[in-house]
Amino acid sequence: MPWLKFMAATRSRSGFNMNEIANYIAVDTIEEAAETLAAGPVTVLAGGTDLMLQTEAGTRSYAATLMNIRRVAELRGVGLEDGSLTIGALTTVSDLLADPIIGAHCPILAETADQFASPQIRNMASIGGNICNASPAGDLLVPLIALGAEVALVSKADGALHSRRMPVEEFVIGPGASKLGDTEILTFVHIPSQDGAAGAFRKFGPRPALEIAIAAVAVTGRIEDGKFAHMRVAFGAVAPTPVRGRAVEAALEDKPATDETINAALAATDADISPIDDVRASAWYRRHLIRTLTQEILADVFRA
């Protein structure tokens, strides 16, 4: 009885959430999901690791209909075609950590998954949920932006399914905000062929595990003829959304892989980010950490 279990789990401090949910629907296909979304206000339940905490804390409320998409089998798993990856939205963070295709073709995602929350949360949290949650500190968003990943968004109107694609970098627009339409469901994440590019992800929080990043960095690219090439950089927890490090990329691209270039890139980090002071860290410390983590990746991974 998953419904009953859910009732118990949502018995919250404010006590109201349970009452707000008028309908519960567990869909089996993308089309059913899109139809349900078209019919009216829906809260989508995937892993629930953010949804539960946010509704419990009262920062988010349920729509009249709660739609469980976890039975949509086609949304879970990793596919490979011509070097490009397609990852179902329900693929869990633990799946990313264990998946052999990810390990072989996109190890930066496995590296990120390994630093994500705790094993229990990794078992439940989905890649689609982590993207839609659009947290400034969302771990997976950072490498996905560096990888040039796109999300597929599906809706149903006039009796037909419509799909559009958009870079992750454009999809997230603010803390908790994305371009996901009210009637849309995020179905797949597409990652273009990395063609042998290197990549690395680093995050820092005061604890070595079970930690929200106070700064995170992902870099992809390669060294060609002693020069940085095809460099893509992304930063997390230092702006309203995870951001692309375009100034750093420009400082690296086609430049010799030397300390001088790296130092120039580190100097450029400030232009890419706009950190704030909060209870977790000061802006100064976040800037310092971004330089530290970027230096670590460029020096240790790319020149190793």
């Binding site: 002071d277 000061s282 802006a283 100064w284 950490l289």
Partner: peptide
């Protein structure tokens, strides 16, 4: 002795809120 305090002591943080 948080990481930020240590980093500030060693690298001299100026801007931003204090820890």
């Amino acid at each position: 002795i948080t990481p930020e305090k240590v980093a500030r002591a060693l690298h001299g943080g100026q801007d931003g809120g204090d820890q």
